[in-house]
Simulated scan of single mutants.
Amino acid sequence: MSPNPLSETHVLVCFAPGKDTGWIAVSHEVHKHAGVHGSPARRMKAAPRRWWQLPGRWAGHLLEVQLAPSGPAFAAGGRKAALDLDGTARTADLAARARYQAWHHDIAGTTPRAKTWEDYLAGNAAKRAGTQVGREELRRQFLAQPRVLAMTAASASGVHKFDPYELDLYQCNEATYACFYWQTALVGDALITADGQYLKPASTSTSDRFEYFGKALAYLRGLADDSCLCVVAVS
């Protein structure tokens, strides 16, 4: 799912109105399709509470909700109508743009353009049999590039975390990088539909992931407001 095999990924599980959406049902769906167990991920903003909604009733429409004394509440899911999907996307977009701008200022302006991890894999695959480099050596070469070294160092000491395996997105432009992240915030790295289909990218390539986003977002937008969603973190 993720270009970085060590990173956490997220699966969005969808249920038709009226279906059981307890954690056992959610976990069962994820294990059936992905073969792994996960945990609820509070990644979606809750819709603003209306003045007539009591706290308990309002929170009852959410799953694994994290209430805060001030500011928006975040939940692992809930009824679609109880979630602020636009706000979730907007928050992810702003965070991604801030991260990109920091990368552009501190790293892109001081280091030469680097080859992406996909470039290394493709180049290695094109070599004749017997001359291919081992995957760990290939990874060492990729991580040793000045731009990638700068990203790793900045991630360890700075406010932002720059994933080297997202180098193709960084080296594209800010709009594409932000678009990737607000879409990920809504549909995760894979989606299980209410009728049991498992949507996921055909590969870890960025182009395949954007193709998945298009299909998953179209499905999400078409769901009824009483449908239930849950985000599950898997590793």
Results as ranks from 00 to 15, higher is better:
D86L: 14
C172G: 10
E211V: 01
L6N: 14
L229W: 02
A175K: 13
R113C: 10
T111H: 09
Q132R: 15
P40L: 10
P48Y: 07
A153C: 09
G130L: 09
R139L: 12
K19A: 15
K80D: 04
L169D: 03
Q66I: 07
G87W: 03
G196N: 00
R42K: 13
Q197V: 00
A82P: 03
L149R: 15
T184V: 06
G38K: 01
M151T: 03
D208Q: 10
T152L: 15
D226C: 11
C230A: 14
H105Y: 12
A108P: 02
P72K: 01
H37E: 14
L229D: 00
T110N: 12
A47N: 10
W58S: 08
W117K: 09
K215W: 05
I107P: 02
A153Y: 08
G123A: 13
Y198M: 08
A89G: 09
W58P: 04
A92V: 04
H160L: 09
F74D: 02
A153P: 00
G22L: 11
V30K: 05
A96H: 05
E211I: 03
L223R: 04
Y170K: 10
T111M: 12
A114G: 08
P3K: 04
E118P: 00
S7C: 12
S207M: 13
L191D: 02
D93S: 10
P55F: 07
S7N: 15
G71H: 01
C230P: 03
Q132I: 07
